[in-house]
């Protein structure tokens, strides 16, 4: 639960970056406009949650799921979001699924690595694994990052 009202705001720096990336280069967005968009985004979350929750309640479920959120977007007439959301969810699911496999793989790799220090075959896995870097002691070998 939010204890202070400002806990229900989204971080301004991130909101500002999203706005800047969406608009043509060099557009000046007033401070007032940025604050308004940020507040609008919080209201959007609440509105979407409320719509999604209605769908969950109708289906006698207590937990909001992906289908509820998608249905909420349609109800709110943001059909234009459906396609990008589907795509993002696919990527997300793969990432979640991949995490387990990758950490398995990682353990095996680590064992191998102690035998052959010049193993360069891990480049592709690196992208999915950035969160695990903290636990990765051989980070200085990552010439292929990004």
């Amino acid at each position: 639960m939010a204890e202070r009202p400002e806990d229900l705001n989204l971080p301004n720096a991130v909101i500002t970056r999203i706005i800047k990336e969406a608009l043509p280069d060099g557009v000046n967005v007033s401070k007032e406009a940025r604050r308004a968009i940020s507040q609008a985004a919080s209201v959007f979350v609440l509105y979407a949650t409320s719509c999604a929750n209605n769908f969950a309640m109708k289906a006698k479920r207590k937990t909001l799921n992906a289908g509820d959120v998608m249905a909420a977007m349609e109800e709110m007439e943001f059909e234009r979001f459906l396609e990008p959301l589907k795509e993002a969810l696919e990527v997300y699911k793969k990432g979640q699924k991949g995490k387990k496999e990758v950490s398995e793989q990682k353990r095996k790799d680590k064992e191998k690595k102690q035998d052959s220090e010049n193993d360069r075959s891990r480049e592709e896995e690196e992208e999915e694994e950035e969160e695990r870097m903290e636990e990765e002691p051989e980070a200085e070998e990552d010439e292929a990052e990004n």
């Binding site: 999203i18 706005i19 609008a40 985004a41 959007f44 949650t49 943001f78 990008p84 993002a88 699911k93």
Partner: peptide, 16 residues
């Protein structure tokens, strides 16, 4: 998944 989708939707909303 619902949480992820709502977060993503909020970003799309801000852009839109």
């Amino acid at each position: 998944e619902a949480l992820f989708l709502t977060t993503k939707a909020t970003e799309l909303f801000v852009q839109h």
